[in-house]
Amino acid sequence: MSGRPLLTDYLIRTEPYYRPVGDEAALFAAAYAARLPMILKGPTGCGKTRFLEHMSWRLRRPLVTIACHEDMSAPDLVGRWLLDAGGTVWHDGPLTRAVRFGAICYLDEVVEARSDTLVAIHPLTDARRMLPLERSGEVVPAHPDFLLVVSYNPGYQALQKDLKESTKQRFGALAFTYPAPDLEAEIVAHEAGVDASCATRLVQVGAASRALVAEGLTEGASTRMLIHAGRLIAGGIGFAPACALAVATPLTDDPALRDALAAAIAAQVP
């Protein structure tokens, strides 16, 4: 099986925009140097994935992303036997490929995966740094460049979804949150192509939605949502309809909360 060429598609060639909020880039680089597996925690759309794309560009490592879901089984990660005319043939899963050839493997929204699936990553995340392929009998030692990174959203509480303690304790972690207002405005302005004052107003709408969590909203607007609204505005849509389309309407079906959000949006329209 050919090696590097398989993963060159996963190399990020142009710098993804990322605005650091603290020393997270230096910390992550140090964790990578120590090959310490990492958890990126934080609410939806606050920049976890973008941060990792940026770091994988900076470290010049391919990034293999796996979106976790509850039907994902261990073979979806490590690989499975397939049948061809000559008999059975082993096919590496994305995790095995990353382990073999030295990529950063990113399990996005890791709590969505079943805990019995996640046990497969345990031997990779301790001193052994290897992946035993139970079904093929092979033991794949991790490439020196390999790193495992997982993300999850602690606020998103689908009843009792959490990482197992035995999984958690193998990782270092960086906690992300929504950036401070002026920083978030800078990000929205850059990503959406709107002026600073419009970005500031969008960030105020974001703050209003996050305050509404105390009144029963499941989660406040993400930076990503604000960027979506900003792009619509840059494309010529009015502030209020853009915010309604990209923020208020997707966030909630509760009429009381939607009306409150609409008032907060209207308050930002001069």
Binding site: A208, L212, A214, E215, P255, D259, A263, A264, A267
Partner: peptide, 19 residues
Amino acid sequence: RGGERRRAALLRALWNRTR
């Protein structure tokens, strides 16, 4: 009741205050 919730949510959304 929805109207009362809307009033409370409005104070929260505009000013992040609650009373």
